[in-house]
Design a protein around this nucleic acid. Structure first.
Lengths: 352, 352
DNA sequence: CCATATATGCTCTAAATGAGCATTAGTTGC
DNA sequence: GCAACTAATGCTCATTTAGAGCATATATGG
């Protein structure tokens, strides 16, 4: 049996890749570092995990990123490992992988305190809401939700006898309040409903490759044709990415949004000295909605996350702001709890 | 370059394994399903991920577990992917992997509402505190902490000029309050300090295999010899497991403990009808400390997690308890928030 | 009936949150 | 210099949660 299996695994290898979501926040914009893949598609930095060179994933990731982008990662955390068949639709995405190899990928999230010039012309910082326009509620409920997404999802749900789809939609899209950390749930629903470009791309790729055994038959089987032309729609439904990178990014956003609430990770994204408003803008950029200023300040100050310095800034035309620095306890991760984020409520219009 | 890499990866393959932490709670005991590996060591159910047979990790895991143990998994969630070099110390742990292959492993957590007979004589449910005696505070602070662990860690920390070790110890072991979800941090510190059997085992294995490049030099370099004989000490410091399985289990425990607080996962572990005390005991078993009964009830009842039925039980010699069932909203995961767990405080004696 | 064991109901206090008003200290235009 | 404007900062008040513990209800075994 051991021999048999040996033959088997020699036939179809597993290739392990590494993917990095490298995030920074600059001037109200949450940025993610992107590269162009060989087809010119937008991708996350990725590459093979090389067991001979890399003692740990962590080391492999840093090495890979530093070679692709001139950036040295600081804070890094493992996100999720993606292994679904067909996820690496454009085959041979990683050098050295044969057609039938299974490519799995270990996704990481990294935080950078500044969006340093990424070096290679190939690397570029992008606002992550380019990929998820519906996730940004800072200026109120995004129109695309009630105008495009929810109607399309509703149609998709109505094609399902059981209430399962509708239930999932209600949870993900906030029938009982918008939960920002459900970014992945929302993306997955939209994918399954055929609303994002990747769903259509993957379906056609699958159609070409496999004549037998329908994989995830529900995906494009009854995907919705929302009418207008694809290009302008993808504009409103966000840019596509290589392979399942947009899913990985959604995972990262959801994770970061959640983590913000129970660990003081914001301070991984701040410069050495900063006014409290910067912390607020950083949080708002990530979370995707506005906060109650005074209460957030109370939370930050009373939590002992920061220390006031004697310096001040004079940015816009208002009273000068005191500059703060992150307290030692927090920088050394001594601090257990995160800061509570007082969100300013915006009522979703749908699910009235 | 692509060719070069192809050769390289043909030389040292990556083999992907799957690991399952399958948990259940029975009568105040948190149980985990274990198997015996070929050496007779206690292991988590594991096996190779077979890309030809398995479309997703999830499917692979269920298949693997059902073949090893007669159990059909319900709730399943990915935990973490372990890839450190040397983690699969006893080489060729997975059939078909050559000596120099790198074995990485995708760990999963599964919850079972009952500890069904596992089938194979090889599979066995065990109380997870056998492996982590210091994590069970239900009868107050475990003696082993102040008697063995903290002194040994303190000694280990004092060998470090920087305060780094001591800081980590203080965070992990609750200088500012015991945080039950830090189970992994605690285990890792103990491993690094050479307090658990696996650390000594891995060190000797490494010593045999590699003459060059000291890997994780701090591990056993100044590991502590706490004096008394190893056997009785391992008794007090918990049973060892194959490879890094105890680390995986620690990850699972920490994750489950954390999740309990923000998602209603307890109800994945309850039978169809139950008295509220059962929920309490289940939570206490997992969390590792007692709760304030009345407040926990308030939390459960007011949160709309359960519905009262007209039935009652008569277990011990007290007033009969009403039987509840989990509400639909919760069973379909409609419920967003978890229940707040009112812990009964126990003051740690150390870090006075 | 009594002692004992739980279950269950309720109260009281303290702390955390949510909202918003008021004041302060600058800048800019005139 | 003054009015208008901008943002920072300080504070208050009402509500909600969370933490503790007392009191009552309904069983069991003598």
């Amino acid at each position: 049996m051991s021999e048999e299996r040996e033959l088997e695994s020699a036939a179809a290898r597993v290739v392990v890749g590494l993917n990095a979501v490298i995030a920074a926040v600059v001037e109200e914009s949450p940025l993610v570092l992107c590269v162009r893949d060989h087809d010119g598609e937008i991708s996350l930095p990725y590459g093979p995990f090389e067991p001979e060179r890399h003692r740990t994933f962590d080391i492999g990731l840093r090495d890979l990123v530093s070679r692709q982008t001139h950036i040295d990662l600081g804070y890094v955390e493992q996100l999720y490992t993606f292994g679904d068949k067909g996820r690496e639709a454009p085959a041979a995405l990683l050098a050295g992988s044969a057609e039938r190899d299974r490519v799995i990928s270990v996704g990481y999230l990294a935080l950078a305190p500044e969006a340093k010039d990424a070096g290679g012309a190939n690397a570029q910082w992008r606002d992550w809401y380019e990929f998820f326009p519906w996730e940004d509620w800072r200026n109120g409920e995004p129109d695309v939700l009630s105008q495009l997404i929810l109607p399309a999802l509703e149609k998709w749900a109505s094609a399902d006898e059981t209430a399962a789809r509708r239930t999932r939609i209600r949870i993900a899209f906030g029938a009982e309040g918008w939960e920002e950390e459900r970014a992945l749930d929302r993306y997955e629903l939209m994918y399954e409903a055929g609303l994002v470009a990747e769903a259509r791309r993957d379906a056609s790729l699958r159609g070409r490759q496999e004549k037998t055994s329908p994989v995830r038959s529900d995906r494009s089987a009854d995907g919705i044709d929302t009418g207008s032309d694809t290009a302008s729609q993808d504009q409103r439904l966000g840019k596509a990415m290589t392979s399942d990178h947009r899913r990985i990014l959604a995972t990262a956003i959801g994770r970061l949004r959640g983590k913000l609430k129970y660990r003081p990770v914001v301070f991984r994204l701040t410069p050495p000295r900063y006014p409290l408003l910067l912390v607020q803008r950083t949080i708002e950029a990530i979370i995707g909605h506005e906060c109650h200023k005074q209460n957030l300040r109370r939370s930050i100050e009373s939590g002992g996350f920061v220390e006031r310095t004697s310096e001040t800034t004079q940015e816009g035309g208002g009273r000068p702001a005191a500059l703060f620095k992150t307290s030692d306890r927090v920088r050394r991760e001594l601090s257990a709890s995160g800061l509570t984020i007082p969100r300013l409520k915006v009522r979703p219009s749908f699910f009235s």
